[in-house]
């Protein structure tokens, strides 16, 4: 060994510092990402979204048109797929009314009976008119309406 003891000591100090530094870098590189990784799910906000129903051109004039979309509610990796069905009615191709297909009585699904020009709920024989108003049966109020918007030829509704 030609190096002097002083040089040896300096070199070893440097190496010690370097080892600590490298350890810090690697530890930080794993440890810091681990924090958001661990608390991430707590930070997630529930968002209220516009749900796209489909092309406006699919809505027939004067006939309530059924649109079905599946809404994915995600909790972690569990994707609950909720089927979301609405009837869209337009009388002039410009103004729409988006109606829930859930009977306001006890929540059965109503369906449009073309021959009778009305919605029919099979559970208690409720009948709703084309615009969703109650014609017969027990429902306390007309079919629920959704807020909607039309963008780029697609119709969207706001859930909730």
């Amino acid at each position: 060994m030609s190096k002097s003891t002083d040089e040896q000591v300096n070199r070893r100090d440097f190496m010690k510092t370097a080892i600590i530094a490298i350890g810090g870098v690697i530890g930080g590189a794993i440890g810091l990402p681990a924090i958001p990784y661990l608390i991430g799910p707590a930070q997630k906000q529930d968002s209220e979204d516009w749900v796209r129903l489909g092309a406006v051109s699919k809505v027939e004039l004067n006939v309530p048109t059924l649109f079905k979309t599946t809404i994915e509610t995600q909790t972690g990796w569990i994707n609950a797929e909720e089927e979301f069905s609405v009837y869209v009615l337009t009388e002039n191709g410009q103004d729409y009314s988006v109606m829930s297909n859930i009977c306001t009585h006890l929540g059965c699904r109503v369906r449009w009976i073309p021959d009778q020009e009305s919605f029919f709920c099979p559970c208690h024989n409720a009948v709703f008119a084309k615009d969703g108003t109650v014609v017969a049966g027990p429902p306390p109020r007309p079919l629920d309406q959704f807020e909607y918007k039309v963008e780029d030829g697609f119709i969207f509704v706001k859930r909730g």
């Binding site: 681990a34 990784y37 991430g40 995600q74």
Partner: peptide
């Protein structure tokens, strides 16, 4: 986060990779 079950294993891996912050890194 991982769930060792065929019904959820894939979903949980996708969740880790795409949803969790820094999950792709880990």
């Amino acid at each position: 986060y991982y769930v060792p079950d065929p019904a959820h294993a894939y979903d949980s891996v996708v969740y880790i990779t795409t949803q969790l912050p820094m999950g792709w890194f880990i």
